[in-house]
């Protein structure tokens, strides 16, 4: 049987899932990485966001066959990094976490934004997380958290 090999949270892994299987299912069911949440399955809510070769993408839209050889980082792996610690601290300080279901995806989008643009304006932050839905916070405290992370994490990004 043909297996698909890729790097997952810094480890070389392989799966024998059919190439059309959704990446989110492979991550959650086969590798037990529960951090990527399924809020819609349509690529609309961003709760399942992961890094594919450092680009943030919705894992519910990616067939696993398309990631042969790619580097995948999920929140489960990203949460082991110093960058994550900074984001987590700022999310807490800003009060950005309510129900928490959108948050892992939101954190990935925050990190992607800051690594591309370490000093984003409010407008750029809003645009940067516009692919991630949150129904609890009205976004403002998340925007504050990212702004805070940019400032407190000066030099990290």
């Amino acid at each position: 049987m043909r297996v698909i090999k890729f790097q997952l949270n810094g480890r070389e892994v392989e799966t024998d899932a059919p190439p059309t299987a959704r990446l989110i299912d492979v991550l959650r069911d086969e590798f037990a990485y529960i951090g990527s949440k399924e809020g819609c399955g349509d690529g609309e809510c961003g709760a399942c966001s992961v890094f594919v070769n450092t680009l943030v993408q919705n894992s519910c839209l990616i067939p696993v066959g398309a990631i042969e050889g790619a580097e995948i980082m999920t929140i489960d792996g990203f949460s082991q990094t110093e960058l994550f610690q900074m984001i987590s601290e700022c999310y807490s300080e800003a009060g950005a976490v309510q129900c928490g279901f959108c948050i892992p995806g939101m954190v990935m989008a925050s990190a992607a934004l800051l690594s591309k643009n370490p000093h984003p304006t409010e407008e750029e932050i809003r645009e940067g997380i516009s692919g991630n839905l949150c129904r609890c916070t009205g976004y403002n405290m998340i925007v504050d958290a990212i702004d805070l992370a940019a400032k407190k994490g000066e030099g990290l990004w």
Partner: peptide, 21 residues
């Protein structure tokens, strides 16, 4: 005065298990 939320760490790391997890 605000405090750190009880469930912050589990939620932000994605490791707090919702029913679908």
């Amino acid at each position: 005065t605000s405090v750190k939320k009880k469930d912050h760490d589990g939620k932000i790391s994605g490791q707090l298990a919702y029913i679908s997890d």
